[in-house]
């Protein structure tokens, strides 16, 4: 499979106005290989460096150090070859001119890519229909709601049929239905394309990243902390599987389970009102569960409840970054 984007030790510093002669590193030694034909996610909190990376890859910003290749072209000096095959959509940002209608604005942008008007208008019509915006085609964009303007901006990214598309928080500010439509549209666009399409998606939303991305990188403080499929990230980074087991606590000593093979971590608490003891096991694999059940049974205690906990991307994120994506000190583990 060909590589759509490759970065090697990519770094970007900005002068920190708050501190003299000091640089703030928005990106640090980022090395990535993004294959063609996939949706690649960049997941990270605010200020992690996601947008900086997108700006470098979309030729708007130069790296301070390292190299970035987009479709094999260097962003530094071959940007003129990159621009015809890329596009970018930033969620929550406006584009176009309020005085023009939705269709006119979209047409204008197609002209900047040299697309013949007839072809462009047909494409615009299709996309407006898919995104349920046909009714507003002839409405001036200064009369549109924020969500509709964002939909139009979103369509603008696709109307030029780019090979590589950068989506920077594309569902920011959209309602649940519109966000769902948007995610489905992107997924279908990549899946059904006649030639490989690559989408680089930055997002705050775990579910969005999990649902859409074939592969994703978790980024924080300008560094890539992990880079894999969502499934593997959940498995590897969260540390296997987790079970909660409740047992009647009278005379039961949970410590005897701690040393069983396959138990990587263990915690327990007493639920006085129910007369139960709740134990949370992190297991390296499922087979350790059988040993725990066997041990409890051998001690003649009855198991009240067993529940398998599915690890989410958020668990992986918390483990890697040390805090929830929503941030806040209270969330720090």
């Amino acid at each position: 499979m060909s590589i759509a984007i490759k970065t090697t030790d990519l770094s970007r510093a900005f002068a920190d106005s708050g501190a003299k002669d000091k640089n703030f590193w928005a990106l640090r030694d980022v090395s990535l290989e993004i294959p063609e034909g996939c949706i690649y996610g960049l997941l990270g909190p605010n200020g992690a460096g996601k947008t900086t990376l997108i700006k470098i890859l979309s030729t708007l910003l130069l790296p301070t150090a390292g190299e970035a290749l987009v479709a094999g072209y260097n962003v530094d000096n071959e940007y003129e070859k990159i621009r015809p095959i890329i596009n970018m959509v930033s969620g929550g940002e406006n584009c176009g001119y309020g005085i023009l209608t939705v269709a006119e604005n979209l047409w204008m942008f197609t002209q900047f890519y040299g697309i013949p008007t007839k072809q462009a208008m047909a494409k615009i019509k299709d996309l407006l229909e898919i995104m349920n915006l046909s009714e507003k085609a002839d409405t001036k964009i200064n009369k549109l709601s924020t969500g509709m303007r964002q939909k139009m901006n979103f369509i603008r990214g696709f109307v030029t049929d780019p090979k590589i598309l950068f989506l920077d928080e594309p569902t920011l500010g959209l309602d649940v239905n519109a966000a769902r439509e948007t995610r489905k549209f992107v997924t279908d666009w990549v899946k059904n394309a006649s030639e490989p399409k690559t989408v680089i998606l930055t997002t705050h939303y775990m579910q969005e990243a999990d649902e859409m991305c074939g592969k994703l990188a978790i980024i924080d403080h300008g560094r890539i902390l992990a880079n894999d499929t969502p499934k593997n990230l959940k498995k590897q980074e969260a540390g296997g599987v987790s079970y909660t087991i409740n047992v009647a606590y009278r005379d039961f000593d949970p410590q005897i389970l701690r040393t069983l093979p396959g138990v990587s971590s263990f915690a327990h608490s007493v639920l006085n009102e129910q007369g139960l003891i709740e134990m949370i096991f992190n297991l390296s694999d499922d087979s350790a569960l059988a040993r725990i059940i066997e041990k409890i049974n051998s001690l003649s205690f009855s198991i009240n409840n067993i529940q398998k906990k599915e690890f989410t991307l958020e668990d992986a994120f918390i483990k890697l970054v040390g805090r929830r994506l929503s941030g806040g000190e209270g969330d720090t583990l």
């Binding site: 708007l60 621009r83 970018m88 406006n94 900047f112």
Partner: peptide
């Protein structure tokens, strides 16, 4: 200010044409 300059820079068209 309106965010269009970014999009112009992204376009494969000469700035002089704009």
């Amino acid at each position: 200010e309106s965010g269009n300059l970014t999009l112009y820079m992204l376009c494969p068209m000469s700035t002089m044409a704009v």
